[in-house]
Design a protein around this nucleic acid. Structure first.
Lengths: 94, 94
DNA sequence: TGAACATATGAACAGTTGAACATATGAGAA
DNA sequence: TTCTCATATGTTCAACTGTTCATATGTTCA
């Protein structure tokens, strides 16, 4: 059980950065390459690439190659669900 | 929308620490005072009190006074829901 | 093969964070 | 009021994190 607590904390740690959340929101629109993501979140390619690696390691996004480009997309429904419930929570605060 | 992204990141930041998650799990068992929580998570009173303040500020726990003691409990259903979905996610990883 | 493009990686630096310690506040009992 | 008990707060410090810059990797096309 203790291991799972740490894993759980690590998962939420990934959701705890606004850049990563913005990337996830961008990907809700569908599969995108790194350049398009960079443009959408207005951050340089390197920063986005670093964050995409974090997101991939925690299985929140998946990737496939298309020629020179890498196409990222959301890994599963949990991502949107967690963001949605989080939004609900902050919306209901007094 | 941008403000909400920051608020959302801040919310998940609260979930991103194993001590805080353990406190939340302890509180799933019901209302508890600070001493009992400290004992349950095996951390000193000061550390727990600091974390309880963080949890309270983000509306994840609520408090009421009972004589000298402060009784903490989970604020709403979102807390358990978010932890549950997080657990589902890490359980399904390859 | 070599140039051009798309993305990844490594290092360094500033900013943030959790824990520990000491101390302060507040409530009840005497 | 004064003494405890229960909890909160302020400060310090080591560890961690996100961004930037520079560079490397990998793919396509000529």
């Amino acid at each position: 059980m203790d291991d799972r607590i740490y894993d759980l904390a690590d998962l939420f740690k990934v959701f705890s950065d606004s850049t990563r959340i913005r990337i996830l929101y961008v990907l809700m629109d569908g599969e995108k390459n790194v350049g398009d993501i960079s443009e959408a979140v207005e951050m340089n390619q390197s920063a986005v690439s670093h964050q995409l690696k974090t997101l991939k390691t925690s299985h929140l996004v998946k990737v496939r190659r298309d020629g020179k480009a890498m196409l990222y997309s959301l890994a599963d429904d949990h991502v949107e669900t967690i963001l949605k419930i989080g939004m609900e929570h902050i919306s209901e605060e007094d």
